[in-house]
C-alpha cells in the first residue's frame, strides 16, 4: 500500500509538470498577444512595444522564458498579471476558495443524494419511484448546466424573489460572523443546486446499475443460501462492492467540475477562478492564465491521487 501511494503521488507530480509544460506552449501558440491588448488597437509604437516586451520578458527565447517561469513557479511566484498588474498568486488565492467551496459542496451533495436515490431505485426496481427517478435523471442529464442555472434564476430570483441571483455576499449589506456565513449559504443555493441537479443523474445511474449488477453476483446468491439477512447482505456485501464505480466517477466528475465550473460561475457572477480565467483568456493574460491552469491541474491531480488512494482502500485487487 505504501509503495502504491508513493507511486500515485509521484505520478500526480509528473502529471502536473507535463500539464504545466503543455499549457505554457499552447497558450503561446494561440494567436494574439497581451502586449497588443495593453497598447490598445490604434497604438503601434515600436519603442513602447519593445519596452513592454522587455518588461514582461517576451523578448527572450521561449525556452528561456519557460526556464525562468518554471524556476519562479517552484518558489511560489507565478508572476504579475499583465492586465491587472497584480500578483497572480494573490489573485488566485483570493478566488480559489469560492470556487472550491462551490465545487466541493455541489460534488459531495450530488454524490450523496445521487447514490441514495440509486440505492433506493435498485432496491425497488420497476416501482413507480424508480420510474420517476430514472426519467428525471434522463431529463436533467441532458440539460446544459448554464441554461438550467438561468432557468433557476428566472424562477427563484426574478419571479418568486426568494433567492439572490448573483455574487457570493450581499455587497450592500455587509455581514459579519454567523450572519456572514448565512449570507454566503443563501447566495450558494442556486449555483450549488444547478451543479447538483446536473451531477445527480450520473451518480444515480452508476449506483443503480452497479447495485443491480452486484446483486446478481454469485457470492450474493451464496450468502443468501447461508440464510444471512437481506439487510446485512446489502449493507455489508452489496454496498461495499457496488460503491467502487461511484468512487471512480466521483474523481472524474470532480476534476471536470473544478475546470468546468467557469460557465456556472459566470452565470451567477460567482467570484471564483472561472470568471478570472475567462477574462484572462480573452485578453491573453499569460501569467494569470498559466497560474490558473497550474492551480487547476494541481487540484485535479490532488483529487485524482486521493480518489486512487480511497479506491485502493476499498478494493484490495488494485493495490499492486
Amino acid at each position: 500500500m505504501k509503495k502504491y501511494v508513493t507511486r500515485r503521488v509521484f505520478m500526480g507530480l509528473l502529471t502536473i509538470f507535463v500539464v504545466f509544460t503543455i499549457n505554457f506552449i499552447i497558450i503561446r501558440l494561440a494567436p494574439g498577444d497581451p502586449i497588443s491588448t495593453i497598447m490598445g488597437k490604434d497604438n503601434d509604437d515600436p519603442i513602447l512595444r519593445t519596452a513592454l516586451e522587455e518588461k514582461y520578458g517576451f523578448d527572450k527565447p521561449m525556452i528561456t522564458q519557460y526556464a525562468i517561469y518554471l524556476k519562479n513557479a517552484l518558489t511560489g511566484d507565478l508572476g504579475i498579471s499583465i492586465i491587472y498588474n497584480k500578483e497572480v498568486m494573490a489573485m488566485i488565492t483570493e478566488r480559489i476558495v469560492p470556487t472550491l467551496l462551490l465545487v466541493l459542496t455541489a460534488a459531495i451533495l450530488a454524490v450523496i443524494i445521487g447514490t441514495l436515490m440509486g440505492m433506493y431505485a435498485a432496491k425497488n426496481e420497476g416501482s413507480k419511484i424508480d420510474v420517476i427517478f430514472s426519467g428525471a435523471a434522463y431529463i436533467f442529464n441532458s440539460m446544459p448546466a448554464f441554461w438550467l442555472g438561468l432557468i433557476l434564476i428566472i424562477i427563484f430570483s426574478s419571479v418568486l424573489g426568494l433567492l439572490p441571483s448573483y455574487g457570493m455576499i450581499n455587497t450592500r449589506d455587509a455581514h459579519t460572523g454567523f450572519d456572514y456565513i448565512l449570507d454566503v449559504i443563501v447566495h450558494m443555493v442556486l449555483p450549488v443546486c444547478t451543479l447538483v441537479l446536473v451531477e445527480i443523474p450520473i451518480y444515480f445511474r452508476i449506483a443503480k446499475s452497479s447495485i443491480l449488477q452486484v446483486t446478481n453476483e454469485d457470492f450474493i446468491v451464496t450468502l443468501r443460501a447461508t440464510g444471512m439477512s437481506e439487510r446485512k447482505i446489502f449493507n455489508k456485501y452489496i454496498l461495499r462492492n457496488a460503491i467502487l464505480p461511484t468512487i471512480t466517477i466521483f474523481g472524474i466528475s470532480l476534476a471536470y467540475l473544478i475546470t468546468g465550473v467557469a460557465l456556472i460561475e459566470t452565470v451567477f457572477a460567482w467570484p471564483g477562478t472561472g470568471s478570472l480565467m475567462l477574462t484572462a483568456i480573452n485578453q491573453r493574460d499569460y501569467p494569470t492564465l498559466m497560474g490558473i491552469y497550474l492551480i487547476m491541474s494541481i487540484s485535479v491531480a490532488v483529487v485524482m491521487v486521493l480518489v486512487d488512494i480511497v479506491y485502493a482502500t476499498f478494493d484490495p485487487r488494485i493495490r499492486f
Binding site: D218, F219, T222, G227, L244, F314, P316, R317
Partner: peptide, 26 residues
C-alpha cells in the same frame, strides 16, 4: 423457518466458486 434450515441443515457449493466470495473482503 427457511433461514433456520439454510446452512444449518442444507448447504450448497455453487458452480462458479471463483465468484463465490466477495472480492473486496478478506
Amino acid at each position: 423457518e427457511l433461514k433456520n434450515i439454510r446452512w444449518n441443515e442444507l448447504a450448497v457449493v455453487f458452480q462458479k466458486s471463483m465468484n463465490a466470495l466477495s472480492p473486496v473482503h478478506r
